[in-house]
Design a protein around this nucleic acid. Structure first.
Lengths: 196, 196
DNA sequence: CCTACCGATCGGTAGG
DNA sequence: CCTACCGATCGGTAGG
């Protein structure tokens, strides 16, 4: 990560990382081999190491790119001058859109992050907890304002987060519903379940 | 599976399968080695093969035990003389209870089944689709009776199913909420989001 | 249930 | 970017 890169190197590396995300999503991190990845990229396995340091580094890059993106968005939402329920709706819509537009990376960072190794593993774990905590605080704010039913806020956040990550099943299926339609349906189910 | 078994053999096999479920949940199927499993059981790796045929067989047994259990329950619910919304509530409570009481097996069958190999893989895949289809039919029935909001039924089912499987995060956390409390919260969030 | 061991495959390196 | 190759680890078997 602290390497000096030429423009071409960055591009090549991005191609590899993108292919890795697709492969890790398809097979799982452990079941995906560097030889599989090499075939996908169109080079010999050994050649990958001119652009990346290790298999772990690929997973690391995918996970932290996604995490940073989500964290920045959370920060922006927190500082918007709108009601808690409006913030929650924005978070839901953001999650859905990320899942649809950036499917492979989001899926991998959600399901394969446990295969990170330890300086990064606990770092990532902490970021996830921090994100959930801040999401929970918004729900609790909504409860205090009487906009949201008096339920356990942490449970509500888990329900929302996992409901959205379940879009994978929809994504995998042939009958692709319109993305906007999907968003509308999910917001209806989730937010109307919260609203007083 | 077609082997002749003594009583002791059945017990031993069950111990191994239980340990495998815990191990596969903890590390993922691919990252879990038979040597890891042997340590957990307290024998040498080679000795495991007196009780089981292969690593895949362990995954197979875990997945299909859970699947059969869910399928039987679905059948029972379908034939109860209650409203669609009552059926949905029963399904939700069943899922939550299974997730809490039978955590390792349910988790593994939900997240690791894609590592099954191909006669069983497609069989399992079909069972999942069948289960979701029948769940969706119940939701659609509720929509026709005007008990449930006019949303896309398949999306609603995905939301429900994945929201519940997200209990893992709660399970993993230290602050274990009371199980009944959790059930109540989730039913409130999910069912009240559906009810007209 | 163990010791001994196998062929295959893995992530990664050396050297050009 | 490739050829050649490494040490480690894997699932599983033979034979007792």
């Amino acid at each position: 990560m602290a390497r000096i890169k030429t423009n071409k190197d960055v591009t090549r590396r991005e191609v590899i990382t993108k292919a890795a995300a697709a492969l890790f999503r398809e097979k799982g991190y452990k079941a995906a081999s560097m030889r599989d990845l090499a075939v996908k990229v169109g080079v010999e396995a050994a050649s990958l190491y001119n652009h990346i340091r290790s298999k772990t580094e690929l997973l690391h890059d995918i996970c932290f790119n996604v995490a940073n993106h989500y964290m920045e968005h959370m920060y922006a939402v927190e500082n918007e001058p709108v009601s808690a329920i409006a913030k929650i709706e924005r978070l839901i819509r953001f999650h859905i859109r990320q899942m649809v537009e950036n499917y492979e990376e989001v899926y991998v960072s959600d399901r394969e992050w446990r295969h990170l190794s330890d300086p990064y593993l606990s770092n990532y774990h902490n970021q996830r907890r921090n994100y959930r905590k801040r999401f929970t605080a918004i729900v609790e704010q909504g409860i205090q304002n009487n906009d949201i039913k008096s339920i356990d806020a942490a449970t509500a956040v888990l329900v929302i987060l996992h409901a959205i990550s379940g879009i994978e099943s929809w994504h995998r299926s042939k009958q692709k519903i319109d993305a906007a339609e999907l968003e509308k349906n999910m917001v209806t189910i989730l937010v109307d379940g919260l609203r007083n």
